[in-house]
Design a protein around this nucleic acid. Structure first.
Lengths: 281, 281
DNA sequence: GCAACAATGAAACTATTGTTTCACAATTAT
DNA sequence: ATAATTGTGAAACAATAGTTTCATTGTTGC
């Protein structure tokens, strides 16, 4: 259930007056009522006057209540094309102890690496070794992990770059890719649609694609990738866990470092020397 | 979803006049619209006059349109007690280098979370809950983790920002910080010297600092932080491992989500709906 | 063709909803 | 305390929704 209105309310909740908070609470609790009830009714339910209600929506930045109603409607039409569809709203228990978190993360890691095929990892490392350039791509939440990967790998070899670091620059970046380049892709569901065109371009450019993803996306990933490294990403909330993903990036980096041997080590040394020069501690 | 209204319409559909059939068809097609739209709007959509619409409902046996609206509402409340909150339930799936890597990562994670004090985590979550704005800072390799943290937290609350996202903009960003704001700092050795002036400014601005760092840097971090969450980051190459760091970020996010409760969950749902709007898969 | 009648929309009318004004209460600053 | 500011509901007001009236159109039966 989407509503800009709710976002607005959450943002300013603390700064709202008493009466407005009553209204806000009511709306947060029963978001659908905006669609079906009049402002007068909402005011009554919240126990405030019509006047306060009218002002409330104005303070939130709407010109009038009609604007609120229309926006809510529009959003519903986008999110709920079939009206009041099935709700299996099982309250996700967000609160868990450290122990439960640890247990789940351990399980993810253990399963992932027990199932991980060392030949695939080695193959990936070799591809990276043979690549003129290495491009790293992670969209959305995975961008952080992608940046991490770039930094780790750029300590081990030259020409490791984030793909499309500037929003609009896909075309420019893609134009710079060449055959035997490696694309290291980090992607978890929900996979973003823009990925498709990028991958299809990558295919024509003869890029070698190494994909780090979750086990469920593995089969699909295999269709466009040379190597897939699948991870367990179970989590009880907040979307899939990236912990194992990050760990797999490290494993790949370690394997590559071993594969590249001395040259990677030298490079790491040089870089840390540069860091010292720059004054890092 | 069988409403009385629909049943009644179906019963007499054949006997309805031309204009009334237009209305009837519209309502059969889009039953929910009765809940959200005015009679005038329905008339317009069906291409008949308000008068015809008014008569239509009377012919169906209702005293006035209000009766129609109230009945529809009542029926919905019976069938849809909690509206339609779409809970995105996650898919619960629950060589030598690989083995060694796994072993080390497991040890890091286990030690870290066995030693982690739940009161500190809770305290951190509360600070975040009370903060007008949350700033996330990670330099160098930690930048990726910082970006990850920002995204995870911005799904749970408003006003979560990366500090100094543009290289030169420290001063501008720091000027925007205020008391009770939280600075979530991710830092591992080698700690970068620019950190010092930033932290000293943070102190004068009365920012609350939550630091995620390694155990060895813990003591130093305590001097400038309100809460320190120390991690084991042992690694046989490539510098410290960020796996545990990332996992700690997740733990903090989970704890915060539990602390913030419904509002965080709602926000997460809204954002995933916006993603869908934008066309994410 | 032409009554008789049903269906319809425009417009008058009524009821309701939403906004603004204003007086007063509550809070904050002085 | 006292003044200034802010939040509030009652009521005046404006806008809109819904109903009814009425003139017009089109159809049916003769």
């Amino acid at each position: 259930m989407a509503s800009r209105l709710v976002l607005r309310i959450q943002e300013r909740y603390q700064r709202l007056t008493a009466g407005e908070q009553k209204l806000a609470q009511l709306i947060l609790d029963r978001q659908d009522d905006i669609l079906t009830h009049s402002a007068t009714e909402i005011a009554e339910m919240a126990g405030v006057s019509k006047a306060t209600a009218a002002r409330f929506f104005q303070h939130l930045g709407y010109a009038d209540f009609n604007e609120v109603k229309l926006q809510a409607r529009e959003e519903r039409n986008r999110t709920e094309p079939y009206g009041y569809s099935v709700t299996r709203s099982e309250q996700v228990a967000l609160g868990r102890t450290i122990g439960a978190h640890l247990e789940l993360e351990l399980k993810n890691l253990t399963k992932t690496f027990e199932e991980m095929r060392s030949d695939k990892v080695r193959q990936a490392a070799e591809l990276i070794g043979a690549a003129p350039k290495v491009w790293v791509l992670g969209l959305g939440v995975e961008e952080g992990v992608a940046r991490y990967a770039r930094l780790v790998f750029s300590r081990l070899r030259h020409s490791v770059m984030i793909l499309g670091i500037n929003q609009g620059s896909w075309a420019e970046d893609l134009a710079m890719t060449g055959p035997k380049d490696v694309l290291l892709l980090v992607t978890l569901p929900p996979h973003q649609p823009i990925l498709k065109p990028i991958l299809s371009h990558a295919a024509t450019s003869r890029l070698n694609i190494i994909t780090i993803t979750d086990r469920n996306s593995m089969l699909e990933a295999q269709r466009y990738s040379n190597v897939v490294l699948p991870c367990h990403v179970a989590s009880f909330a907040l979307g899939p866990s990236h912990t194992t993903i990050l760990s797999t990036v490290r494993l790949l980096a370690l394997t590559y470092a071993a594969h590249a041997g001395r040259s990677a080590q030298q490079r790491a040394e040089i870089i840390s020397a540069i860091h010292e020069e720059l004054g890092d501690l």
